[in-house]
């Protein structure tokens, strides 16, 4: 495991209850993977389903943690920045409370402090959402 749940706050700017990632389980040069268990009480649950913006947030936080832990974020440990855009989004399914989602993010391109990443989250073998995000570092 690259970053365990207990340390994830050292690498991303979000704080509870907005943290939508547990463990960063892989961070190679261009691919980041994470897991996240949806606990009862998650603020983005509606009728026991995790809403779509939490899935986007999960992809964004996986990206931030992956970039920071790989040293791609200008060598900074914490990836401070903002989500500059979301595009090519396809929503297939919303996961349920107590399920665990797995997320894979690939770094598509980088230009100075801007990163284009493609993320997909899964629950078991079911694809939940895919999209591209633009992260801008500050």
């Amino acid at each position: 495991m690259i970053i365990p749940k207990e340390k994830i706050e050292d690498f991303i700017p979000q704080r509870p209850p907005f943290i939508m990632i547990d463990n960063l389980i892989e961070a190679s040069a261009e691919t980041f993977r994470s897991d996240f268990r949806i606990l009862p009480g998650n603020i983005f649950l509606e009728n026991d389903l995790l809403r779509e913006f939490a899935l986007i947030e999960n992809i964004a936080q996986t990206s931030s943690a992956g970039l920071a832990s790989s040293g791609l974020f200008f060598g900074k440990q914490k990836a401070d920045g903002y989500l500059g855009g979301v595009s090519k989004l396809k929503l297939y399914e919303l996961p349920k409370v107590n399920e665990t989602i797995y997320t894979i993010v690939n770094l598509v391109a980088r230009l100075e402090n801007m990163f284009l990443l493609k993320g997909v989250n899964y629950c078991e073998d079911r694809k939940l959402m895919e999209c591209e995000i633009k992260l801008v570092g500050i």
Partner: peptide, 8 residues
């Protein structure tokens, strides 16, 4: 930020 997509 759109510049990034033009780079791609």
């Amino acid at each position: 930020i759109d510049a990034l997509e033009l780079v791609v």
